[in-house]
Amino acid sequence: MTSVTDTAPARPAFRLTRAFQGLERLVVPVVLIAGWEAFARSGMLPPALLPAPSAVLHALGDWVFGFDETTQTYSGHWLRDALASALRVFGGFALASLLGILAGVAIGWSRLFEKTLEPTLQMLRPIPPVSWIPLAIIWFGIADKPAIFLVFLGAFFPVLMNSIHGVKTVDHNLVRAGAMMGANGRQMLTDIVLPAALPSIFAGLRIAVGSAWMLTVTAEMVAVKSGLGYVLWDSYYFLRYDIVLAAMISIGLLGYLSDLGLKAIMARTLRWQQATTVQGRAG
């Protein structure tokens, strides 16, 4: 009885929130950018050191579309730079995913691999990927390969750790059920352990794609002469902070898009999980 009268006045408010649905994502960025613009225009810092968002947008626009060559040699070359970085990210990330999942499942499932392989990998893990740069350059020269190698190093360990964890925490009764239904060793891995470990593996992949973008920039600063990271570092030498910021925004955006793509794949693959998790709740 009371619940009917209680919910009735709530309806218009509900409709209001529906009208603004989707806009809620924009609130924080808009507030941040407006504050930044106001601060930059106040003149407390010289515009060369802190360009206003409008100036950054201008640089980004010219970099992408090449309308007034404010970004000089980069004008209109954004797509080429973004593609160069994206290919390195994709190459390193794909390699890291493949090897990380393979090694992780092997270590998680088999005591033999755990004893032989894991100590070495765990010792390599804390070494910062950046510290591999000298060796990477000696081994692979100055081109895409050292960059891909660094991306691989950054992305491999999150995938590895989460795959090991995913396999180790598979419900042993599912393994028993599989054995009861006559699964052989290979089927146990492909049909039971791997799907059961997928939620964990995906968590690792999402961390890894972020690390991959972080490292492609580091790699491009030293090892190659193309890509968003190279443009960022090169512009810093010319004190073009507007381009530096435009490059940072580009990397952030592409990283965000990669994560969205991965999330979409994850949502499709793990649809079975949604009814029981917080993620699947309404709204």
């Binding site: 419900d171 009764n173 028993r176 059920a177 009861m180 799907p195 059961a196 793990l270 079975w272 999980q273």
Partner: peptide, 20 residues
Amino acid sequence: ERPGSDRGVVFQQPTLMPWL
């Protein structure tokens, strides 16, 4: 000697593959 499909087991918990 080992589990096999000649012996069907119904577990205390359903123990189904949640992704199927």
